[in-house]
Structure formats: C-alpha cells, structure tokens
Amino acid sequence: MRTDDLIDLLSTHVDPVDRHKVSRSILVAVGLGAVAAVALVFLMFGARQDLGHADAHAYIGAKLAFSVAVVALSSVYLGRLARPGGERRVSLLVVALPFIAVMALAGLALATAPPSHWDDAVMGDRWLECLVSIPLIAVVPFAATMWAVRQHMPTDLRRAGALAGLLAGGLSATGYALHCMDDSVPFVAVWYGATIVLCAAAGALLGPKLLRW
C-alpha cells in the first residue's frame, strides 16, 4: 500500500471530532464504578446501622474525604495518561497526597492516644473484612476504568494501568465506607490505604497487557 493512498483514504469525508471524549469516558467509568461499588456494598452488607445519625456522618465524612480525594485526583490524572505523552503531565507526589495526609493524621491520632489503645485504633473490629472487601468490590469499577482507557491511546501502559487501578480502588473504598464501622483514622490509613494501593499495583501489572493498541 502506498502511503499517499492511505492518506487519501483517511482524509475523505472527515467529521468534526468530539474533543471531550476522553474526559467523558472517564466520567462514565467513574459513574458506573461508583454505582456498582455502592450497590454491591448494600447487597453484601447493607448500610451501617447508624447511617441516619449525625455522629456517624462525621465519621463517614472523614473516610469519604479520603476516598473521594483519591477518586478525584486519579480521575484527573487518568484523563491525562489516557492520551499519548500524557505521562509527562502526571506527578506521583500529587497522587500520593491523600495517602500522605491520612498517614500524617493517623500518626497524630496515635501520638495523642495512650499506647494501650493503638492496637484497637489500627486493627479495628474488622480489618480482615476490609482487606478482602475493597479489592473484591473494586473488580467492576476496575473493568470500567480499564474499558475507558482502552478507548484512547495511553503511551505509558504501566502508569495508566496503575492509575486506573487506583481509581477503581478509590471508588470501591467509597462504597465500602458506607458500611464499615471502623472509624479510627489509623484504621483508614492502614487498611483503606493498603487495599487501594493493592488495586493500583494490580493495575500496573495488567496495564501493559490490557491497554495495548
């Protein structure tokens, strides 16, 4: 095939291009992932019993602030990584900010608490449930975020995969927070933090396979 023939083929009847396609597909993935995560949490566990109480709102709000920050930052960055060369516009430090903040707060909480409470504060009642649930609930959001990135042309597949995993983990944690009764900041820092990072690691591993074009 001659290159000029290919160019002729490609430039016959050119339609205007939808410039918001990248951000829209990621928004759709976030929406789908959030609905799937919340629905799964309600089906598996039901909402926490005191969801109607004002006290609970403060606790849930703090957890949501962390997971929603992860979701917001990773969706913005995923919108960049889905484009060729977008990896130049991504800073690892910024992505890590919510994790650094929650760890700092956890450190502060532990420092001001008597050491006898540390065990309770870090392990909570249900660390194992959290450890299993967040990655499990993240499966559908993960499929959604990967599907979104696959429609575009990431050139750093590992990083794009990691961010898609991070976003899925953040969405899953947001859903799980509506059920989880462990409200201490150290618990959130350790178990939410670790499981979300695990999702990102899975994404980094699968990215080069799933995102090739």
């Binding site: 290919l6 291009v17 396609k21 990248v22 889905a82 484009r83 516009r89 042309m153």
Partner: peptide, 19 residues
Amino acid sequence: VQEALMAIHVGRHTYDTAE
C-alpha cells in the same frame, strides 16, 4: 509510518488542543 498515521487518525480525539 502508515501505522502511526492510522493511529494519529483514529486517535485524534486524544489530542488536547491546550497542549
């Protein structure tokens, strides 16, 4: 060259005009 042209054509929506 042809592969890259194809990709540029099919994926031109991924170009952010602010960049």
